[in-house]
Amino acid sequence: MSARTGVHAAPSPDGIALMDTRAGRGQWRFLDPVGARLWQTITDGTPPATAITDLTAYWHSRGADPAQVRTDLTALADDLERADLLHHAAPAAQPDRTEVRFAAAAPASAAQRLAGHVGLFAALVLLRLLPIRIAIAGARVVTLLPGRAALPEEADAAFTAVRRAARLWPGRAACLEESLATHFAAALTGRRVRWVIGARFIPQGAHAWIEAGTVIIGQDETDRVWPYVPALQVERSN
Rank of each mutant, 00 (worst) to 15 (best):
L168V: 05
R133N: 14
L120Q: 01
R140Q: 14
I197L: 12
E153C: 12
Y58A: 15
S109G: 14
L145G: 06
P11T: 07
L55D: 01
L18A: 05
T189I: 15
E221M: 14
R113S: 08
A150R: 01
T56D: 03
I217C: 09
P230A: 10
T53P: 01
T21D: 00
Q40T: 12
P11L: 13
Q94C: 10
Q204P: 02
M1C: 12
A165L: 10
S12W: 06
L124C: 07
I136Q: 04
A137V: 12
A51S: 08
I202Y: 06
H207V: 11
W59R: 10
V141A: 13
E153F: 11
P33W: 01
R194G: 10
A75R: 08
G15V: 04
P47I: 11
A36S: 13
A187D: 06
E211D: 11
T53W: 03
A93H: 02
A36Q: 02
A75L: 11
Q233R: 13
L176E: 00
P146F: 07
R167E: 09
D78R: 14
A3Q: 11
V225Q: 15
A57R: 13
A185E: 02
V162N: 06
A92Q: 01
L188R: 04
A104H: 10
V34R: 12
L180R: 01
R113A: 12
L86Q: 04
R164S: 10
L130N: 00
D54P: 05
L86D: 02
Q68L: 15
H60M: 11
W39T: 02
R29T: 15
A75H: 07
A57W: 04
A57S: 12
A135Q: 00
P203W: 08
T160S: 15
T41P: 08
T41W: 09
L73T: 00
S61W: 01
T182Q: 06
A208R: 04
D14T: 04
L145I: 08
G138F: 08
T41Q: 15
E178G: 02
D79N: 14
G26Y: 02
D96K: 12
I216S: 09
R167L: 15
A64Q: 07
A10C: 10
A186H: 02
R200H: 00
H183L: 12
P146L: 08
P131S: 13
D54C: 09
R101W: 14
V225A: 15
Q40H: 11
F102D: 03
P47V: 13
D84T: 12
T74C: 09
T56C: 09
Y228F: 15
R236T: 06
H183V: 04
I136R: 06
Q40F: 09
E178A: 09
V193Y: 06
I52M: 05
R167W: 08
A89R: 03
Q204R: 13
G205R: 11
P203H: 11
T189G: 10
V7M: 05
R97D: 00
R236K: 08
R191N: 12
W169F: 14
A115Q: 08
A105T: 05
G171Y: 11
L144K: 09
R191L: 15
F121E: 00
E221K: 13
A36F: 07
I42C: 03
A10L: 10
I197Q: 05
S2V: 14
T43C: 14
A64F: 07
H88P: 00
G119T: 00
G15M: 08
T182R: 06
A166W: 03
T21C: 13
P227E: 05
A231C: 03
D54E: 14
L144Y: 07
